[in-house]
Design a protein around this nucleic acid. Sequence first.
DNA 1: TTACTATTGTTTCAAACAGAAACAATAAAC
DNA 2: GTTTATTGTTTCTGTTTGAAACAATAGTAA
Lengths: 234, 234
Amino acid sequence: MAFNTSGYLPHIAYDSVIFGFSGEKLKILLIEYHKTGWLALPGGFVKVDEPLDEAVKRGLRERTGLDQIFLEQFYTFGSLERVQPEIMKKILTAHDKDIADDHWLLDRFISVGYYALIDYDKVEPTPDALSDSINWYGVDEIPELLFDHNFIVKKALDHLRTHLDQKLLSVNLLPERFTMKELQQVYEAILGEKLNRANFQRKILSLGILERHEKLYSGGSHKAPYLYSLKKKV
Amino acid sequence: MAFNTSGYLPHIAYDSVIFGFSGEKLKILLIEYHKTGWLALPGGFVKVDEPLDEAVKRGLRERTGLDQIFLEQFYTFGSLERVQPEIMKKILTAHDKDIADDHWLLDRFISVGYYALIDYDKVEPTPDALSDSINWYGVDEIPELLFDHNFIVKKALDHLRTHLDQKLLSVNLLPERFTMKELQQVYEAILGEKLNRANFQRKILSLGILERHEKLYSGGSHKAPYLYSLKKKV
DNA sequence: TTACTATTGTTTCAAACAGAAACAATAAAC
DNA sequence: GTTTATTGTTTCTGTTTGAAACAATAGTAA
């Protein structure tokens, strides 16, 4: 075990699965590492005197520019298979860093998985020091990722699907005001199946947590849909 | 940050909420620390080359003597409020250990919460080196616990309640063969409310995952109930 | 102005489900 | 046999859900 003067807790990391909805598809953000072209989830480390949640928010702010976003922890990954110091070493050396064999980043890490739901259109994805680029990928066309990140994405999607309905989680993927059709599209993208329009509207409205606003005249030659927003808490 | 030759990962712990069902009430195991009388969840640490899940199983085996038990991770606790080195120091010194101020156990810990469901009657609770005793406490009469352990118990119960139905989780709290009444009592103890007998039977049987066996003649002067078990997977 | 079209909001109808109560079966005691 | 306590099943009713039809309406085009 290497001594570590980085200011970060050793052995502990987080990975975030950042979901956005593009208008038709559910997507997540992936970073591409310098030179190697390897893809992975955006993640980071926890400062020694920083709450875990706060560390994840910090990383998200740096990556997306967004604050106040929906963020939830879903699982902590602590297997041994996920430990691959050779990979980490290559990433670091590709970035022109000269790394000692006992550098703390080459140690074993246990990683806490978080997922975020954000308004796709409000984001300016920003790479960090180690990554060339950060881009959106549809959840049904995720390429091979480093470490156990494909597994992490799968777990995040599972979690999102089973908790979809609590308090209309999914509105976090839309702008403040949205139409019923947009909301249904988000549901369909997450669940990966078509839903019945009439029943969807009935079910969502029966939750009683949406507020109906003015109509949205889009210019189409048909009835204009209402805009909705989440009811403010009383 | 102190250097650590213990063979355990620093800064990472787990806490386990071990549920058992006594025939009427849902209970959990709590340890009492040497001399101080302080109560806490049984927990432990992860060896440097040990999978997280394995570490928790190991601890459970030592505490309960049981292997092959139902175990699930539910949340990871990483706030700063949970860091209380003074408390940890008192526990260790009460145990006649002379502890340096930079001992690794006094550092900040992030703790992964697991819960286990076990057959109450099969367990011989066993204290560890630091604890005097380990005993059952009804979930509605949990005393004040150390650190954030009351919060951890609450989160575990929440998680158990919302996931109760998946694959009849709760049968893990009963012996292999059980009556419908016993199963209903487990449900009632977990949910904290009475359920309708006829509807419960109908709902559970409609899941189609129980096998019906011979009747259980208890000696009571009334119709004998059937015994059930979980269907083996095909 | 008046059809016409595309889309959205609402209603209807039947099937499935859930909650409460009644009914039926039965093991042991008297 | 009769009685009693408990368990297994059915019936009745009201509610929810799924699929389809119906109604409303914003623009387009004759």
